[in-house]
Design a protein around this nucleic acid. Structure first.
Length: 265
DNA sequence: TTAGCATGCGTAC
DNA sequence: TACGCCTGCTAAT
């Protein structure tokens, strides 16, 4: 399940497996069949990402993919792939295949359209030239809780429900504090950890926010009993690794929020 | 076998 | 704020 790190990971995989090679495309599920025909015979000329949006460039044609909640790419050695019927888009260059299932969006657009999409999005911590001041400017003026703002793709692009919870925990920040009351140094902590974690996790495709090196051997064993990947996400009722207070959860704007009521005051 | 849920988001009320 | 949508996994029946 995808946040910004996944999208970058998927882009890198396409870059490595398909860049500059001629592909054939098909849509066994049917909903991208005409577009797949158009791509077939072209080379992948590049990939780009912004937040949770992936762009596969075939010359002036661009495949725009948003994975949504369930979408995923699977990669295969050899050109055949899985032969499953639920595949929206299969690319193959003879050596490798990629298969896209369950995306919320998969469409063929122009280079100009990509600009329209990205200009609606906030700064992406995965971009080298990302400007945290732009995100700060929005947060500083907002009356919404910081937990809501971090999920807003127009504020920071690429953060989802897992990173939202984990970044707030790492910053020891009360999720319900309104944006306008957030201290700049806390925002800087959230941003720098977003950059660090998204980059690290884009290498693997998996979210691992817990830094095991910060625990003693004894505590590390205890942490491992519950998880070795996240501090609070989906750990409702389990003890906080730092203070043993049970992790709390509630729905905020329709999504589950997890936090430690003691550490995040 | 079925129901419920999920790292998302657009639209309608 | 509620719902629908795209799919797949797991828990409940």
């Amino acid at each position: 399940m995808p946040e910004g790190h996944t999208i970058r990971y998927m882009a890198n995989m396409h870059e490595n497996l398909f860049r500059d090679s001629i592909v054939s495309a098909e849509s066994p599920q049917g909903r991208f069949a005409d577009e797949a025909k158009r791509i077939t015979g072209n080379a992948l000329t590049g990939t780009s990402t912004h937040g949770k949006h992936l762009f596969l460039h075939f010359g002036s044609d661009v495949v725009h993919v948003h994975l949504g909640l369930y979408g995923w790419f699977h990669f295969f050695r050899g050109g055949e792939g899985s032969k499953r019927d639920s595949v929206r888009l299969r690319l193959n260059n003879g050596l490798y295949a990629s298969e896209l299932t369950g995306p919320t969006r998969c469409e063929l657009i122009s280079e100009a359209d990509t600009a329209h999409i990205t200009e609606e999005l906030g700064q992406d911590p995965l971009h080298e030239n990302a400007d945290p001041d732009e995100a700060w400017a929005i947060i500083q003026k907002s009356r919404k809780p910081i937990a809501t703002l971090l999920m807003d793709q127009g504020v920071i692009a690429g953060i989802g429900n897992v990173y939202r919870a984990e970044l707030l925990y790492i910053a020891r920040q009360d999720p319900f504090l309104i944006g306008a009351d957030l201290e700049r140094k806390v925002f800087d902590n959230i941003w720098s950890n977003a950059v660090r974690l998204l980059r690290k996790d884009a290498e693997t495709g998996f979210i691992q926010t817990v830094d095991l090196s910060e625990f003693s051997d004894e505590d590390r064993a205890n942490v491992g009993k519950y998880t070795n990947t996240v501090y609070v996400y989906k750990r409702h009722g389990q003890p906080c690794f730092m203070c043993n207070t049970p992790i709390k959860t509630m729905r905020l704007a329709g999504r589950a929020l997890y936090w430690c009521p003691t550490c995040q005051k």
